[in-house]
Write a protein that binds this DNA or RNA. Structure first.
Length: 279
DNA sequence: AGTATCCTGGAA
DNA sequence: TTCCAGGATACT
């Protein structure tokens, strides 16, 4: 235990973290040309790295938790950070990569992006068309399709626990364990409730809570818990962990009532909620 | 719908 | 030295 946190509760790059990296990387590499890609860990790179060499970066995109480095011809390098992935910037001449460097993307002039990943679950992937790589069918916060109507519709279709639905990337893109827990607390909804039992008022409240918590986390440049791996492009942590209401607060007092935050397992994931005020 | 799998740092 | 956590995927 460190300051009451179980060290093993990793927080992971979700929509706000990937969005932060996207914005920061876009500032650095728009207009730059790829000089070469060094694959230090074979498992971490999918596709033909040479396809990206010589290409010029048009912009950076994001689909759910996948970062897209998009070239002028529509081809792209995609990245998924999974549990322990990081993307770090190195100016020309800066020495040292990072402890778990797996892929180094070098740009003309000598600067580079270093993809680091202790657990090797994440990946960098070269694709011919970035548009084809974004999962079709899932709605996503901050996109036009994330309406209350669509949100309500997908919840009504399933009896699975609401938290499982929030984290199911085939249904809703970008939400992981941190923000599912936090949004459900803000909406005062029990994570174990079957999704199709939410009332219209609860659905509306949860829809707003999701957008609210994601917006605040982006403003904080993401969440970096005591134990965890997410870092901004410059290596610094985000600050949203300072605002966690239930996540990693098992055993502590609920901020909303006299109850205590409980930790239970749901779908193999640590689930934090207050059984007193989340119904 | 539930469970094994990948992988490894660090808590126990 | 052992064992756990976790996103996404592949199975059963």
């Amino acid at each position: 235990m460190v300051n009451g946190f179980r060290i093993l509760d990793n927080s992971l790059p979700e929509l706000p973290e990937v969005e932060t990296i996207r914005r920061q990387a876009q500032e650095k590499i728009t207009g730059k040309t790829i000089a070469g890609i060094d694959v230090l860990e074979k498992k971490s790179f999918i596709g033909d790295k040479n396809a990206a060499v010589g290409k010029t970066v048009s912009r950076l995109g994001r689909c759910a938790k996948v970062l897209q480095i998009i070239f002028k011809d529509g081809s792209a390098l995609l990245m998924h950070f999974k549990l322990t992935g990081q993307l770090l910037w190195r100016d020309a001449g800066a020495s040292g990569e990072c402890r778990f460097a797996r892929v180094v993307i070098r740009f003309n002039g000598g600067s580079r992006l270093v993809f680091c990943d202790a657990r090797k679950f994440g990946w960098v992937k070269a694709v011919p068309d970035y548009k084809k790589e974004c999962a079709a069918g899932a709605i996503e916060p901050f996109r036009d399709d994330f309406t209350q109507e669509n949100f309500s519709r997908v919840l009504k279709k399933s009896r699975r626990p609401i938290k499982i639905i929030l984290m199911d990337q085939a249904v809703i893109g970008g939400i992981g364990n941190i923000y599912a827990n936090e949004a459900l607390f803000l909406a005062r909804i029990d994570p174990f409730r079957p999704a199709n039992t939410l009332t219209a008022a609860e659905t509306k409240k949860l829809h707003a809570a999701i957008l609210n918590v994601l917006k605040k986390a982006i403003a904080c440049k993401g969440s970096s818990g005591k134990d965890e791996w997410y870092r901004q492009l410059n290596g610094l942590p985000g600050c949203y962990q300072e605002h966690f209401l239930v996540y990693q607060r098992g055993g502590k007092k609920c901020f909303g009532c006299v109850g205590k935050v409980t930790r239970k397992n749901l779908g193999g994931r640590g689930t934090f909620y207050c059984p007193v005020c989340q119904r």
